[in-house]
């Protein structure tokens, strides 16, 4: 059984050159800025769930977000970054505002996906407020529908470098 458990997980998965370089950049940036830790609280503010699938993928062995010290936390009280998806629905507005208020300063907000960036295909819906920036201040936008895990990593790196 032990063999099954470890098979394929013992050696890191080899990645294409651009992604490996991105990983190295990210690693350096996190260390410089944060001494290896950044806590991310994900908030689905009306997503179709496509963005969540790709954010989930950041945790798989290929991207392995935690190796950079970036990790998802359960409570906004533990978070440095709110990673928000979706065209902020009317029904999620208050929850998003409350989550933002519950996150201690200093904090950063990343709007991930075309919906969070500017309402995406749901533009003009009376049930949606629209871009995340209409509800809470946004520090970085990662576009894509959904953004790929590599694009999400790139975005987080940009956030670290910009600060």
């Amino acid at each position: 059984m032990l063999r099954t458990l470890l098979q394929g997980l013992r050696t890191p998965v080899t990645e294409s050159a651009p992604l490996a370089m991105l990983a190295a950049d990210l690693d350096r940036a996190v260390q410089r800025r944060l001494g290896r830790s950044l806590a991310i609280r994900e908030v689905d503010a009306g997503s179709c769930n496509g963005c969540e699938l790709e954010i989930h993928a950041l945790n798989n062995a290929y991207y392995d977000l935690e190796r950079f010290g970036l990790r998802f936390v359960a409570s906004p009280r533990h978070a440095d970054v709110l990673l928000v998806t979706g065209p902020v629905t009317r029904n999620m507005r208050e929850a998003l505002e409350r989550t933002w208020r519950a996150t201690p300063d200093p904090k950063w907000v990343v709007a991930a996906g075309d919906c969070a960036a500017g309402c995406g295909v749901f533009a003009d819906s009376p049930a949606c407020i629209g871009a995340v920036s209409k509800v809470v201040p946004v520090d970085l936008v990662i576009s894509g529908c959904p953004p790929t895990p590599a694009q999400l990593l790139q975005g987080l790196l940009a956030l670290l470098n910009a600060r």
Partner: peptide, 8 residues
Amino acid sequence: YVHKGIDR
């Protein structure tokens, strides 16, 4: 909560 008004 994630009602986006798709029908509309």
